[in-house]
């Protein structure tokens, strides 16, 4: 196979891949779940939740936010700096489902005030 043909094939392959990524990227993302659908059966799953912060326990390294939708769930945040989220804020959280005392909780990896 000539190098020029190989180069053309490589370019076509790359373009086909880009097209595939472009078409599928609109369907990809962390699944948004209502809080009443999150249980210990979803352990280790990545989820996206929206809700209102109804309680904040803030310590030096960790904060625990109670998110209500109206069902509530605890969200654990390992802090790198101060947490500027207070009661009443609406937030979007992406994180991993974990279990604590037989109850599902979320270990937050991304928090956004909405």
């Amino acid at each position: 196979m000539k190098e020029s043909l190989l180069v053309k094939l490589a370019l076509i392959t790359s373009l086909a891949g880009i097209l595939m990524l472009f078409l599928i990227s609109g369907h990809i993302g962390v699944e948004e779940k209502p809080l009443d659908k999150i249980s210990v059966e979803n352990l280790e799953d990545y989820v996206k939740v929206n809700g209102m912060v109804t309680n904040v326990i803030d310590t030096d390294n960790v904060a625990i936010l109670k998110i209500t939708q109206p069902r509530d769930i605890d969200v654990v945040v390992f802090k790198n700096g101060p947490l500027n989220i207070s009661k009443g804020a609406n937030v979007e959280i992406i994180g991993k489902v974990d279990e604590y005392k037989n109850k599902a909780e979320i270990i937050a990896e991304l928090i956004r005030v909405t």
């Binding site: 490589a10 392959t13 891949g17 990524l21």
Partner: peptide, 29 residues
């Protein structure tokens, strides 16, 4: 990191493989 992937995830990875394969061909040559 992912635990498992669905069909969308697989297609995404195959798309990435195609792009990387094309780029890697040029780079290797």
């Amino acid at each position: 990191i992912l635990k498992s992937i669905d069909m969308n995830g697989l297609v995404m990875f195959l798309g990435a493989s195609l792009i990387a394969g094309g780029i890697a061909t040029l780079l290797t040559l």
